[in-house]
C-alpha cells in the first residue's frame, strides 16, 4: 500500500506568453521506509512536483491544473490552507538544497528548531528544547548544548544541512522530501549526509522522496526511480533495472554522457540540443527534438507503458 500517491499531477504557469505546462501528468508513489528518486535536468519540473505536494506552488501565476495527491485516502490538493499548514512540517517535511538560505540568519538555530515544534503544538518550551538537543545529537552535531544557541553563520555547510535534517525530522514526519539535499556540499560531507539520511530513515521508517540530478546518488540510495523530462515522466521503475538497462532514449543518453562511463581520450557522448523552455515544449513526445531515434510517429504523444522488464517507459519504439 502506497503511503502517498501522486496521480496525473499537472502544475501550470500562466505567463504573458501563454501557459507553461511545467509539470504535465506525473504519477508516482511513496512507500513507508522506502526511497523514491525523482531525477531530471534543471528545468524539468522536478522541484515543482515537490512544491505541489507541499502546497507551495508560487501563486498567483502557478496553479495545480489537475491530478490528485492521495495521502491516507484523502486528496492533499483539496485541503484548506490552514489544514495544509498543520500538515506541512509535521507529517510531510522538506529539506532544501541550500542550507545557507533555508535557515534564518538572525535567529539562533535552537530558536528555529523550537519554533517548528511549538507551531505544531507538541509540548512545552522546556520539553521542546530537550527534544531539539536530543535531535541535534542524533544527527551528529558535536556539543549540541552549545550549538543550540549558535547562529547559522557559525556553522559549516555540512552542519547547517544537519540542522535542516534535524528540523525536518523533529516532528517524526511520515514523508520526507529531500530536494537536492547534498548538491551544495563536498563529496566527503555528502557521504556523511546521505549516510545520516539512510540511518534516520531506517530508524523512523520515513518514506522519502529524493530529488536529485546525480545518478550516482540514486544508484546508491534509492529503491525506485522516476525520470522526468520537460514536465513528463519518461521512465519509471526499480533503480537497479533502470540504471543497468535503461530503456528510454533520454535515460540512455543521460547515462552515456557521464564522464565515469568513458575512458580518457574518448569523446564524451552528449545529448544534442538543450532542454526546451516550458513555454514551448514540442508537441507529441517532448524529447523528440533531441532524440536520435525520432521518427514521424513521435509527433503523437507516447503514453507510459509497461515493458517486458516491468519498467514503465514512454517511447513508441520500446517493447
Amino acid at each position: 500500500m502506497a503511503l502517498l500517491e501522486v496521480k496525473d499531477l499537472r502544475t501550470y504557469f500562466n505567463l504573458p506568453e501563454g501557459t507553461a505546462k511545467a509539470v504535465d501528468g506525473v504519477s508516482f508513489s511513496l512507500e513507508k521506509g522506502k526511497t523514491t528518486a525523482l531525477v531530471g535536468e534543471s528545468g524539468c519540473g522536478k522541484t515543482l512536483v515537490s512544491y505541489s505536494i507541499m502546497g507551495l506552488v508560487p501563486e498567483p501565476n502557478g496553479f495545480v491544473a489537475g491530478g490528485e495527491i492521495m495521502f491516507r485516502e484523502e486528496d492533499l490538493l483539496k485541503f484548506s490552507f490552514s489544514r495544509m499548514r498543520s500538515l506541512r512540517g509535521k507529517t510531510i517535511s522538506m529539506i532544501f538544497q541550500e542550507p545557507m538560505t533555508a535557515l534564518n540568519p538572525v535567529f539562533s538555530i535552537g530558536n528555529q528548531l523550537i519554533e517548528s515544534l511549538m507551531t505544531h503544538g507538541t509540548g512545552d518550551r522546556v520539553g521542546a528544547k530537550k527534544r531539539c538537543i536530543e535531535m541535534l545529537k542524533e544527527v551528529g552535531i558535536p556539543g549540541p548544548d552549545q550549538r543550540f544557541d549558535e547562529y547559522p553563520h557559525q556553522l559549516s555547510g555540512g552542519m547547517k544541512q544537519r540542522v535542516m535534517i534535524a528540523m525536518a525530522l523533529l516532528t517524526n514526519p511520515d514523508i520526507l522530501i529531500a530536494d537536492e539535499p547534498t548538491t551544495a556540499l563536498d563529496v566527503t560531507i555528502q557521504a556523511q549526509i546521505l549516510d545520516l539520511l539512510k540511518k534516520m530513515q531506517k530508524k523512523y521508517k520515513t518514506a522519502m522522496l529524493l530529488i536529485t540530478h546525480d545518478l550516482g546518488i540514486v544508484s546508491e540510495n534509492a529503491d525506485s526511480l522516476t525520470i522526468m523530462y520537460a514536465g513528463k515522466v519518461v521512465e519509471q521503475g526499480d533503480v537497479k533495472t533502470v540504471l543497468k538497462k535503461p530503456s528510454h532514449p533520454y535515460t540512455q543518453g543521460l547515462l552515456r554522457s557521464l564522464p565515469s562511463m568513458h575512458s580518457p581520450g574518448k569523446k564524451l557522448y552528449s545529448i544534442p540540443g538543450v532542454v526546451p523552455q516550458a513555454i514551448n515544449f514540442p508537441e507529441g513526445c517532448r524529447f523528440r527534438t533531441r532524440c536520435i531515434e525520432a521518427k514521424k510517429e513521435c509527433e503523437n504523444e507516447p503514453s507510459l507503458k509497461i515493458l517486458k522488464n516491468k519498467v514503465k517507459c514512454a517511447c513508441f519504439f520500446r517493447k
Binding site: 544508484s219 546508491e220 540504471l243 565515469s260
Partner: peptide
Amino acid sequence: ISLMSAVPEVESKKKKRRIILAGDV
C-alpha cells in the same frame, strides 16, 4: 582514498568499501 570512496557511482562493479570521514575540514 577516502575522497574517492565517497563518490557515489552508478555502476559499482565490486562492493566498494565506503570510508566516511568524520567531521568537517
